[in-house]
């Protein structure tokens, strides 16, 4: 095994190509526009990416287990709504830090409960996660619209801006939150029993059960944790936009799936790592910000994201053919 192979084995086969591409995109935009390599742009990217990043982490583990969680956006919305409700109970703009912390706890409880409910239906009823999370998505969206009548909720204490817009030692707080979450996810997936079980279940749930893994509890936990990280995303969204609206971030739903696939997560489950997914997120953010700077709008970058995913799939297919020869088909 060469040093290169060892590095590949350690980081995952997707990491180095994605890293190279990230560098390429970075260099290309830096040359294309002087606005790209500026503190202002880098900082705005660092503030924008974490919400998508947290939601992608919420999507990733269900995919690894062979499922999908289509309810993440509305789990985040409902959690944000819960926090907003608690803050308003404590006087809206006058609410204190204690109220905020209490609200965060309540928000996380909402995210975890909705996740656990899905996990329970997936694990104990054996229903397909796509259908379960789709139904949960429709339910939560309906609940949110019912509660807010489709309107915005705003008027929160000013100190929330520290979380949404502040820096600690020059690093944006949202980025810190995301970095921490990504680290926790990495450790969870590579070093804990739960993470180990996630991969095994993703490949073959029956054999996992026969090997003594607690498959049902693992599934419950997967969706519960996914709900918790959605709640964190929801809290972050509230602090960044200083308002809550059900449906906010709806467009991110399929982008999170796209980011997972870009990062080499196997659509059938069982394989995928955090680091390449984070790299995929960075690339998506750079594409979006860079295109914005050279005058294209957000919609063009949506299209470019899709084309990028197709290109990556085509390259992987080509790489597979080269590696294993043409083979038979």
């Amino acid at each position: 095994m060469s040093a290169f192979d060892r590095l590949n084995a350690r980081l995952g086969r997707e990491t180095l190509p994605l890293l190279a591409f990230a560098v390429f995109v970075f260099a290309a935009f830096s040359l294309a526009t002087p606005l790209f390599l500026t503190g202002r742009n880098l900082s705005s990217m660092a503030f924008q990416m974490p919400v998508l990043g947290l939601l992608t982490l919420a999507m990733m583990v269900p995919i690894l287990s062979g499922g999908l969680n289509l309810a993440i956006i509305f789990q985040a919305n409902l959690s944000g709504l819960t926090l907003a409700w608690v803050l308003i109970q404590f006087g809206g703009p006058e609410a204190g830090v204690g109220a905020f912390l209490l609200g965060c706890l309540a928000a996380i409880a909402v995210g975890a409960t909705s996740g656990a409910l899905m996990g329970a239906v997936v694990a104990y009823v054996g229903a397909h996660p796509i259908l379960v999370s789709l139904a949960m998505m429709i339910f939560l969206r309906g609940l949110g619209e019912f509660l807010t009548r489709g309107g915005d909720i705003s008027g929160f204490p000013e100190f929330l801006g520290v979380i949404g817009h502040g820096n600690v030692m020059g690093i944006p707080v949202p980025l810190l939150v995301f970095g921490l979450a990504a680290l926790v996810w990495h450790i969870m997936l590579t070093r804990t029993r739960h993470g180990f079980s996630v991969y095994m279940i993703g490949s073959n749930i029956e054999a996992s059960e026969y090997s003594g893994l607690h498959t049902k509890r693992t599934l419950m936990l997967i969706y519960t944790i996914s709900g918790i990280i959605c709640a964190v995303a929801g809290i972050l969204m509230l602090t960044r936009f200083n308002s809550v609206r059900v449906g906010h971030g709806e467009a991110l739903l399929l982008v999170t799936v796209l980011a997972c696939f870009l990062g080499g997560v196997d659509p059938f489950g069982g394989f995928g790592r955090v680091l390449p997914v984070v790299l995929a997120l960075v690339i998506l953010q750079m594409l979006s910000s860079g295109l914005n700077l050279i005058g294209a709008n957000q919609h063009l970058s949506t299209a470019v994201w899709g084309l990028f995913l197709i290109a990556v799939m085509a390259l992987r297919w080509l790489g597979g053919r080269l590696r294993y020869g043409t083979g038979r088909d």
Binding site: V255, V257, S301, T302, A303, G306, I310
Partner: peptide, 14 residues
């Protein structure tokens, strides 16, 4: 289809 979803919608809106 998630990729083409993004491509179709993005180009249409653009």
């Amino acid at each position: 289809t998630i990729a083409t979803f993004n491509v179709f919608f993005g180009l249409l809106m653009f």
